[in-house]
Amino acid sequence: MAKTLGPVRRSFQPWNDPSEPAFIELRNVTKRFGEFTAVDNQSLTVYEREFFALLGPSGCGKTTLLRMMAGFEEPSEGEILLEGQPLTGVPPHRRPVNMMFQSYALFPHMNVADNIAFGLKQEGMGKADIAQRVAEMLRLVKLEEFSARKPSQLSGGQQQRVALARALAKRPKVLLLDEPLGALDKKLREETQFELADLQQDLGLTFVIVTHDQEEAMTMADRIAVMDHGRIIQVATPAEIYEAPATRYIADFVGDVNIFEGTAEPLAGGGLRIATSAGFAVEVAAAPNGAAAPARGDTVWFAIRPEKMVISHDRPAGAKEGTAPNLIEGEVWDIGYLGDVSIYNVRLASGDVVRATRLNADREVERPITWEDRVWISWRADAGIVLAG
């Protein structure tokens, strides 16, 4: 069986099939607002029935991309196609897409049923068909008993469901979601993420979501495009984004990570030894991700996730005395207890701080690691990744 990065989400992977046609295609799209370039000559392909996420910090251009797909903005250069047909000049209400806004934009004077029916009435659908479609949407989002309530009488999660039902009522080919869960509390947001992903698969629609929340993107999306300053830096599955980031920016933006600068020394068999500026040595089994192996003396960066490091009171058995690779000693500087895991910030002799996590599998621990303890941190040769830039 071939090795994969992280868990396999589902067998749906059209991006690996050269014969699969693009459903949404952006070709060299640029968007300028005066002197400011919000999106800078970007191309992107989204496939039918894909749940696709645009992820990045505020101001990176992700919402501008979404608004161009919806038709609320026109590209300054380039074109956007849906099923091979250019969308340039097609107004929003004529596109087979619908957009769910962060604010939900529900009509406060209308009840839930009328909010869902609004777009259908605008299209001239018959009363009987509207009633049937609204009932179908209410069942879909589990709000049948709330149909007569006004938005002000609903919780934030219920309002989110009404907005989703209204967006889906017109049966668009593509649903565009702009930070749709941002107004929900943490627990409800986490529950809704799974519900939304399940709903998308059940409906067989194409969803494109904009979010700055990395966990949200990784929970729901089949693929993620990470953006920065108007450019798409990497497009990959959640596991690939997390386990094999293309750049230091992505490694640092997605999840917790330790990144150390160092000098490379190639080893026989394709491995690499790195003398880090923090004063310890690293040995890895492979060259940098997606790049040629560095030459002796090149500057590289070693990135490793905290959960892939082992923290202990005692020096690991079998570790050589002296300066062994993939082994560091330090003092516990700070501890964060999150219930399922504990986070340890360990200060090295160099002054650098390394973050490691430990699973709290037992309720009681015989030798707990606490503040100011001297500890050892170690990791396997394949636990981290080398980045060339």
Rank of each mutant, 00 (worst) to 15 (best):
L5Y: 11
V8M: 13
R10M: 15
F12W: 09
N16V: 15
D17I: 06
E20R: 15
P21T: 12
R32H: 13
R32I: 10
F33I: 05
A38M: 00
V39F: 03
L44P: 02
E48Y: 08
F52M: 00
L54N: 00
P57T: 11
G59I: 03
M68I: 10
F72H: 02
F72E: 00
S76W: 03
G78F: 05
L81I: 03
H109S: 05
N111V: 00
N111W: 02
N111L: 01
I116M: 05
M125G: 09
Q132F: 13
R133H: 04
R133I: 04
R139A: 13
L140A: 01
E144I: 08
L164Y: 01
R166D: 05
R171H: 11
K173H: 05
L177I: 01
D178L: 01
D178E: 04
A183F: 09
R189P: 04
E190S: 09
E191I: 08
E191Y: 04
T192W: 03
Q193K: 06
L196Y: 01
L199F: 10
D202M: 12
L205D: 11
F207N: 02
V208F: 04
M218V: 14
R223Y: 13
I224S: 07
M227C: 01
M227L: 11
I233N: 07
A244P: 10
P245G: 10
P245Y: 07
G255H: 06
D256Q: 15
D256M: 14
E265A: 14
G269W: 10
T276W: 03
A285W: 11
A285R: 12
P294A: 03
V300G: 05
F302M: 00
I304E: 08
P306F: 06
K308P: 05
I311Y: 02
H313S: 08
D314E: 14
P316K: 07
G322H: 00
T323L: 14
T323V: 13
A324E: 10
E331F: 14
E331H: 13
L338T: 12
Y344W: 07
R347S: 11
R358D: 10
R358E: 10
R363A: 15
P368G: 06
W376C: 09
I377P: 02
R380T: 09
R380L: 12
L387Q: 04
